[in-house]
């Protein structure tokens, strides 16, 4: 079978800035594929194009063997491609549980009439959604925070909650944008385990944008390096790590810091 997500020749311009230039990305089903690169390389923009939130000037995106280039963001979400955000996008006015229940949106099976009249189906589905959300909260270790206001959670827990919300959608493909940003070493370690567990227990394919090189090299099956909006290298983590281009352009920079 071909890739779960395939992006071909993706080009994005913001005014004069070329954020992405003919970038290709292939994500194999069941893999953890990481995208790394210096600040401003275009990683977030690439996730934006994949999820339909950034308009590409050229290129094609296919998901589950269907061309979704023209599909709006919500349709991609509903089709099972769910993302998180580099700058947290928490529904701060809702409880943690309600946030995660919102994640269930795409597989709650009732219509407007059901909720206006609170039919039997409504109650059944709502109970199922609630239990599902609680399970996901438990999975990320936030079960005891279900009734807290999401905005009151400490930063690290808000990151976890965003992941719980995303996996409550039972995605086929999960796009994570710098989930370790702002986390300490111990939290990052735990996050790595969580990401692996999501793949193992739920069979979710994962795209990970991350700066933390240890985390990336430890859990990825494939790594793609972006620099100034261009593909620099792609391959298994060990190979990418040894790639002279990458060492020169990216990892070398890190050593200088």
């Amino acid at each position: 079978m071909s890739s779960l997500l395939a992006m071909r020749g993706v080009t994005v311009r913001f005014g004069g800035v070329v954020a992405l230039a003919e970038v290709d990305l292939d994500v194999a089903l069941g893999s953890i594929t990481s995208i790394i690169g210096p600040n401003g390389a275009g990683k977030t923009t690439l996730l934006g194009v994949a999820s339909g939130m950034v308009q590409a000037a050229a290129g094609a995106v296919s998901f589950l063997d269907r061309d979704v280039s023209a599909a709006p963001a919500h349709a991609r979400g509903a089709a099972g491609m769910v993302r998180t955000f580099q700058n947290l996008e928490v529904f701060s006015n809702m409880t943690v549980l309600e946030n995660v229940m919102t994640g269930c949106h795409r597989h709650v099976g009732y219509g407007v009439v059901d909720c206006l009249l609170r039919t039997g189906r409504f109650r059944r589905e709502e109970r199922r959604c609630r239990e599902h959300a609680l399970k996901r909260l438990d999975f990320v270790g936030l079960a005891d925070k279900a009734e807290s206001r999401a905005g009151d959670l400490p930063y690290g827990l808000q990151r976890r909650m965003e992941i719980a919300r995303a996996i409550a959608a039972d995605p086929t493909l999960l796009l994570l944008d710098e989930p370790a940003a702002g986390l300490n070493t111990r939290e990052t370690q735990a996050l790595g385990e969580l990401i692996t567990a999501i793949r193992e227990s739920q069979g979710v394919t994962i795209v990970l944008v991350e700066h933390d090189m240890d985390l990336v090299m430890r859990i990825s099956d494939a790594v793609m390096v972006l620099k100034e909006g261009r593909n620099l290298a792609v391959g298994p983590p060990e190979a990418v790590q040894k790639d002279p281009e990458v060492i020169k352009a990216y990892l070398g920079e890190d050593d200088e810091d």
């Binding site: 963001a73 919500h74 993302r83 996008e89 006015n93 919102t102 949106h105 795409r106 959608a169």
Partner: peptide
């Protein structure tokens, strides 16, 4: 109301 992008991300039209 809080985040249109995050709502869309989980499939809300």
């Amino acid at each position: 109301h809080t985040s249109e992008r995050a709502a869309e991300a989980v499939g809300v039209d």
